[in-house]
């Protein structure tokens, strides 16, 4: 399987990915799927500069990313990064084959509720995480290799939603 990590992380390309995960997974490339950044050459350049020279990087909007990911060469080990569950589900809806979703960084902001130290959700996040689960794809929270893995299943989503006003 060439897609070795499909990660939701609002920090996108940063040390946990380029050092933490890359040390263990040894990816050939990183695909950053984000409509806003893909449309902005300046932001794209900044994110590209954060990737070590031995790893290729493509910054694509959702439409292009889906085509790109659906045609990955088998031997090309790829890390996929998206900002939020909505973008991840969009790729699933477009037929991208994902074995498992890694929730690696969904940081605190207004009206979000804490599931884990590095995973905060609002109702929109919950709705799209449910759709990902309903597509038969498990979702696990894990910030970096070696730390405890938390399963984000339907029960966990029901539980966090039940404490929301």
């Amino acid at each position: 399987m060439s897609l070795i990590l499909a990660r939701i992380d609002d920090r996108l390309i940063h040390g946990q990915v380029t050092v933490g995960w890359s040390r263990i997974l040894q990816p050939d490339q990183i695909v950053l799927c984000n409509d806003t950044i893909a449309a902005d050459p300046w932001q794209s350049k900044i994110y590209k500069s954060a990737v070590p020279p031995d790893i290729d990087v493509s910054i694509l909007n959702k439409e292009s990313a889906a085509v790109f990911l659906n045609n990955l060469p088998l031997e090309c080990k790829t890390i996929l990064l998206v900002e939020n569950p909505e973008d991840m589900f969009d790729l699933v809806r477009r037929g991208v084959k994902i074995d498992e979703v890694n929730a690696g960084g969904m940081h605190h902001s207004n009206s979000k509720y804490e599931m884990f130290e590095y995973v905060y959700v609002n109702r929109t996040d919950i709705a799209y995480l449910r759709r990902i689960l309903n597509s038969g794809i498990p979702v696990n929270a894990q910030s970096v290799p070696g730390v405890k893995i938390h399963t984000i299943d339907k029960l966990a989503l029901d539980a966090i939603e039940s404490i929301m006003p």
Binding site: G20, V144, P145, G146, V147
Partner: peptide, 15 residues
Amino acid sequence: LGVELVSVVEMIMGP
């Protein structure tokens, strides 16, 4: 400083 540097290394790389 040193204690925190180690904790940041673990935040980035895992335990």
